[in-house]
Simulated scan of single mutants.
Amino acid sequence: MGFFRISREFEVCNNVNQVLLFLLIVTICGILYKKVHRGTVLRNETDDDSETPEDMEDEIPVVICAAAGRMGAAMAAINSIYSNTDANILFYVVGLRNTLSRIRKWIEHSKLREINFKIVEFNPMVLKGKIRPDSARPELLQPNTYMGYLDYRKKTIKDLGISPSTCSFNPGVIVANMTEWKHQRITKQLEKWMQKNVEENLYSSSLGGGVATSPMLIVFHGKYSTINPLWHIRHLGWNPDTRYSEHFLQEAKLLHWNGRHKPWDFPSVHNDLWESWFVPDPAGIFKLHHPNS
């Protein structure tokens, strides 16, 4: 119990559907462990460079997905993290093959050039056989209970013994113990439940975004504790007419513009906070769309 720390709001269910920004939008996973699973990695250092055991021990990997259309969001998140900590951070920036050179250029030709980073290529083929053809990833209204994510008409779901009224959690920001992750073979468990959905259509893809969230709800059930809500202030992109108090935002540790109203677009709220960490795109592709920009 408790080796996964996941954001869940107020520990109670409410009647308001929530928007979950997941995966290809700025997904931040701070992993407090000295090693990360090795994949196809492009380093910002030469292969001859080596790290001492002391450096590895203090290193904190942070994984961020850099979706092509929202790469500016990833860069702003990296800038904010790097500028607000003295810790030895190693950024793993994940992208598709056709975006890797752009990611590298953005980092190496901007104020981010001093960060310690690795670029990781995501191969979509790893998802073969694990995603249904009808699966979608739009900005969906998200339910607050397991009922909205799992199809309780299916025997496989009923046999889990999880009450449909159980409050769901938001896996958009997690801190994971990678020793336990590997020991309990969490990746294999998640892949198993993704494959089961392809075979049996177990998840409510129309409401709950069954591609990623539903398997996590199953695998992490009873194996997580919540993080301080200040480490995941959500719904900043929910409604352009709804604002948090400035005092509250100053106390916040992590801001999340989940929803349709992104801080680089118009209309949006609290975009001044986001813009303070914005790193201009050297290629001039990603641009702000504000009346005064």
Rank of each mutant, 00 (worst) to 15 (best):
K130P: 00
A176Y: 02
D58K: 12
L96N: 13
E59V: 09
G69F: 04
Y149H: 07
T40F: 07
E54Y: 11
M125Y: 13
N271R: 09
Y146A: 03
N98A: 15
S225L: 05
Q142C: 15
T179C: 02
L90K: 13
E199F: 02
K262H: 09
R104V: 10
F117D: 03
G2P: 01
M194I: 03
A252V: 02
T213L: 08
I81C: 02
V26Q: 08
S163M: 11
F10Q: 04
R137T: 15
S101R: 15
P267V: 07
V93E: 07
L249Q: 03
D134K: 11
G208F: 00
E121N: 14
G259W: 08
C167N: 10
I78D: 11
K118V: 15
F286E: 07
M1Q: 11
I227C: 05
N98F: 14
V26E: 05
L112G: 07
G208K: 06
E108Y: 00
I131L: 15
T213K: 08
M71V: 05
Y92H: 14
G72E: 06
Y203Q: 02
K158Q: 15
N123W: 05
R38N: 09
I157Y: 06
E54D: 11
L90H: 14
L255S: 01
I233F: 01
H247Q: 14
R137Y: 14
R113P: 00
R5K: 14
D281H: 04
V63S: 13
G30W: 04
F117T: 00
K34A: 00
H270C: 01
L96Y: 14
E57A: 13
L273G: 00
F4D: 05
G39K: 05
N144D: 09
L23H: 08
E200W: 06
P263V: 06
P138V: 10
E59I: 09
Q250L: 07
D265I: 01
V198I: 06
V173Q: 05
V63T: 11
S110L: 08
E108V: 13
E251K: 13
N84H: 12
R70H: 12
V173D: 00
M194G: 10
Y149T: 01
E9F: 13
G72F: 00
S245H: 02
P280E: 08
N177V: 00
L23V: 06
F248Y: 14
I89D: 10
P171R: 02
P164G: 05
G259Y: 07
T52P: 00
